[in-house]
Simulated scan of single mutants.
Amino acid sequence: MGVTDVKQSPRRGRPPQTAEEAEQVRARIIGATADVFAKHGSRGLSVALILDGAGISRPTFYRYFANAEEPLNVLLEESDRALVAGLTKAIEAAGDDVAMAISVIDAYIDWAHARGPLLGPLFSELYDRSSPVSAHRTKAIDDIRTIVVRRIVELGRDAPNPLDLDALLNACEFLVYRVVALGGSADVTADARSTMIRIAIVTLGKPDDVRMALEIPGVF
C-alpha cells in the first residue's frame, strides 16, 4: 500500500478560529479588564480576575495578551482617543471663545458619561506616576492643550497662559468625575456644566466674552 493510500486522520484540537471569533474573544477580555479596573484600579488588576470576568481559560488569555497591563493599555488608549476626538470636533466647530467653551464642556461631559465607573480610577490615578493611567492621561491632556491653543490662536486671540489652561483642564477633570460620582443626574450634570463653563470663560476669556456669556441662560 502506497503512502498516498493511507487515510489521514483528522487533526485533533479546537478548529481554527475565525477573525471575527478572535475579535469577540479579545473584546471580552478588554470588557472584563474594564470591569476589574473600575472596581479595583490598576493596582488590583490581575490576569486571574480578568479570566473570571471574561469566562475564558488562561491559555486563551495569553493567546491575545502577555499580561494584565496590555488589555488595560488598550482600554486606556480607546478612552483617551474618544476624549480627544470629541473635544477636537467641538473645538474646530466653534466660531468664538464662548461657543468653544460651551461645546468643549458638553463634549467633556458626554465623554464622562460614556466612561461611567471607569472615571473613578481614571481620575484617582491621574497623578500616580507608577500607574499606567498617568502616562495615558498626561498625553491626552497634552493633546487637548495643543488643540485648544491652536484654535484660540486661529480665532485671532493670544495663546492662553499655560498655567490658566492647566488649571481649567484640571478643573474639568475634577468636575466630570463629580458628575459621575454623584450619579450623573440631570440636575448634577447641569450644575457641573454651568460651573465648568463659568470657569472656562473667566479663566481664558476677555471681558467681552464674560458679557456675552451673561446673555446665555443658565451660565451665570
Rank of each mutant, 00 (worst) to 15 (best):
Leu165Ser: 00
Leu122Gly: 03
Leu126His: 15
Leu163His: 11
Asp143Gly: 06
Ile141Arg: 09
Tyr127His: 12
Leu165Trp: 05
Leu119Val: 06
Leu165Ile: 09
Arg115Thr: 11
Ile144Val: 10
Lys139Gly: 07
His136Phe: 09
Ala135Asn: 07
Arg145Ser: 06
Gly156Ile: 05
Lys139Tyr: 10
Thr138Met: 08
Ile147Val: 14
Phe123Pro: 02
Leu119Thr: 00
Trp111Thr: 01
Arg151Pro: 03
His113Arg: 14
Ile152Gly: 08
Ser131Cys: 03
Thr146Ile: 12
Pro132Asp: 00
His136Ala: 06
Ser130Lys: 13
Gly120Ile: 11
Asp142Trp: 15
Phe123Tyr: 15
Glu125Ile: 10
Leu165Val: 09
Leu122Trp: 06
Val133Ile: 12
Asp142His: 15
Val149Trp: 00
Glu154Trp: 11
Ser131Trp: 02
Asp164Leu: 14
Ala107Leu: 05
Leu163Thr: 15
Asp158Cys: 12
Ala112Pro: 01
Leu168Cys: 06
Arg157Trp: 08
Leu163Tyr: 11
Ala112Thr: 06
Pro162Asp: 05
Phe123Ser: 08
Val133Ser: 01
Tyr127Glu: 12
Asp164Phe: 15
Asp166Ala: 10
Asp158Gly: 13
Leu126Gln: 13
Ile109Pro: 00
Ala140Glu: 06
Ile109Trp: 00
Tyr108Val: 13
Lys139Asn: 08
Val149Asp: 01
Val133Arg: 00
Ala135Glu: 12
Ser130Phe: 09
Ala135His: 11
Ala112Glu: 01
Glu125Ser: 03
Ala135Gln: 09
Thr146Pro: 07
Arg115Leu: 10
Tyr127Ile: 15
Ala167Tyr: 15
Ser130Met: 14
Ala107Phe: 09
Arg157Pro: 04
Ala114Gln: 09
Leu168Asp: 00
Arg115Gly: 02
Ser131Ala: 00
Arg150Thr: 08
Leu155Asp: 04
Ala114Arg: 08
Arg129Phe: 13
Asp158Thr: 15
Val148Gly: 05
Ala159Tyr: 05
Leu126Met: 12
Asp166Lys: 04
Gly116Cys: 07
Val149Asn: 00
His113Thr: 13
Leu168Ser: 03
Ala112Leu: 00
Ile141Met: 10
Arg151Gly: 04
Asp110Ala: 10
Asp158Leu: 14
Ser130Pro: 05
Tyr108Arg: 14
Glu154Tyr: 07
Asn161Pro: 04
Leu119Phe: 03
Ile147Cys: 06
Asp164Gln: 13
Ser130Leu: 12
Phe123Val: 12
Asp166Arg: 08
Arg137Phe: 07
Val148Glu: 03
Leu163Asp: 10
Asp143Met: 14
Glu125Lys: 03
Ala107Gln: 05
Leu126Arg: 14
Ser124Arg: 14
Tyr127Asp: 13
Asn161Val: 05
Ala135Leu: 08
Ala112Gln: 00
Val153Asn: 10
Tyr127Trp: 12
Pro160Tyr: 01
Ile144Phe: 04
Ala159Cys: 07
Arg150Gly: 00
Asp158Phe: 15
Leu119Arg: 01
Ser124Ala: 12
Asp143Trp: 10
Lys139Thr: 07
Thr146Met: 13
Val149Cys: 02
Lys139His: 12
Gly120Pro: 07
Ala135Val: 13
Ala167Pro: 05
